[in-house]
Design a protein around this nucleic acid. Structure first.
Lengths: 232, 232
DNA sequence: AACGCGTATACTGTATGCAGCATTCAGTTG
DNA sequence: CAACTGAATGCTGCATACAGTATACGCGTT
């Protein structure tokens, strides 16, 4: 904390970042995201049991916040809790994945119609910005960053709908599918196809053509299934 | 536990219940449902903070399983966690409720189409059975039991779809709305209307008319909104 | 040699203790 | 009298300790 504030203390107008409440994430919250990442990266294999003591040491955390995090993830459906036997990383069957994609399609199609009606031009421009960044990452074949931006687009897209319940339902399923989608988009052709679909989506969104957008979303989900089914 | 088993001990064939794994719910799991009930009944008021020590004593449970339960409920969206300030019972605005009902409508309409295609005749008959029991409860104006059966029908209905992800998404939102729905169906006229709609739903389900069923579901949700909006 | 049983070990489930932050109230100053 | 400051209290967040259950291993028996 230095004293040399570049702007006068009295000024409440847009103080870069330093004025807004500092992010104070609790341990269990931090642990939740860490475990999610570990599942996506495959460090925690689907079907395997989670040893609390061991994982706690790995993360440098006691069992208490770790267990709290596991309860949270259990509610999300990423982990299964068996009494007196602890936590097991959920393993999804092909049907499970197909079912999740079906629900995702329904939710995103609904979000599409809402977004085209209610989103502001700026909000749509923001999504376009993310999309363009994603295209850049594709150009240099930066797969990890592409994947993250891809997820970000879907999230932003859902936010355009302005329906919090819709967003949370979507997020929950999305997080369950993350790992599967990650190991999905492998081949170059599939990757190119996915990008093309995204191009369509952003186009119809900008044109505010809800019906057509909803159709593309459904197609996108159907193709995602084809991209992913082989890995199951 | 008496020893006079009416069937020979050796018989492994359909031993009533006594053979299937005994339900061993852990404390935090039990606490989750108890807290849910307390929220529905209004014992824990929306917007109020939850004192862990106090609530723990009320339930006769230490803080540890209680806290684990709160994390679970937070993921369900029934409770909000603020760092260093603990748990707050979520308070939903009129828009929140409207949004949730919209999503519920989309999910149930999708479930309707699936159920009409895939459900077995027996499964549909089971739903009809619950419905008939509900009508009985209505006849004697047993509001609490009616409410429970009503919820059960919606759940069973979702199960007919055979899509687990769809079911869990629905359950999550449904549990957030439970209290609001409970204090909703107050007036006699509204109650009668709701029952009539249910009558239609079961009828179209038995006829396996997915499109019409989906339409009725949407209407039902719209009317639910009208029944509920006044209490917000 | 294979199977069953009993004990030992390890891990989960719960309780308790301690540290740090939030809230409240009293005292002080303008 | 109002507003602000600072200490005291209460509550949350995390770690540790203890109890109960599952699992694994070795021993004995057939």
């Amino acid at each position: 904390m230095t004293m040399e504030t570049s702007v006068p203390d009295v000024s409440p107008a847009t103080p870069a970042d330093s004025a807004l409440p500092i992010a104070r994430r609790s341990l269990h919250d931090e642990v939740v995201t860490r475990i999610r990442d570990m599942i996506i990266e495959g460090v925690l294999a689907p079907g395997s049991r989670v040893n609390e003591t061991h994982l706690g040491q790995t993360l440098g955390v006691s069992r208490t916040p770790l267990r709290e995090a596991l309860k949270f993830l259990a509610s999300e459906g990423l982990i299964e809790l068996v009494t007196a036997r602890g936590a097991i990383v959920k393993k999804f069957s092909a049907k499970d994945v197909r079912d999740m994609l079906d629900v995702l399609a329904v939710l995103e199609a609904f979000a599409a119609r809402l977004a085209c009606r209610k989103a502001s031009d700026e909000a749509i421009a923001d999504v376009r910005a993310i999309h363009d960044r994603m295209v850049e990452r594709y150009a240099v074949r930066d797969r990890l960053e592409y994947f993250k931006l891809n997820q970000q687009i879907h999230t932003a897209f859902l936010q355009l709908s302005g329906n919090a319940a819709l967003e949370s339902a979507h997020t929950s399923i999305q997080s369950r599918l993350k790992r599967i989608r990650y190991i999905g988009n492998q081949g170059p052709q599939q990757w190119a196809d996915a990008l093309a679909e995204h191009e369509d989506m952003i186009k119809f969104l900008e044109a505010r053509d809800g019906a057509r957008l909803a159709r593309v979303v459904n197609q996108h989900m159907e193709h995602t299934w084809e991209r992913v089914r082989l890995t199951l």
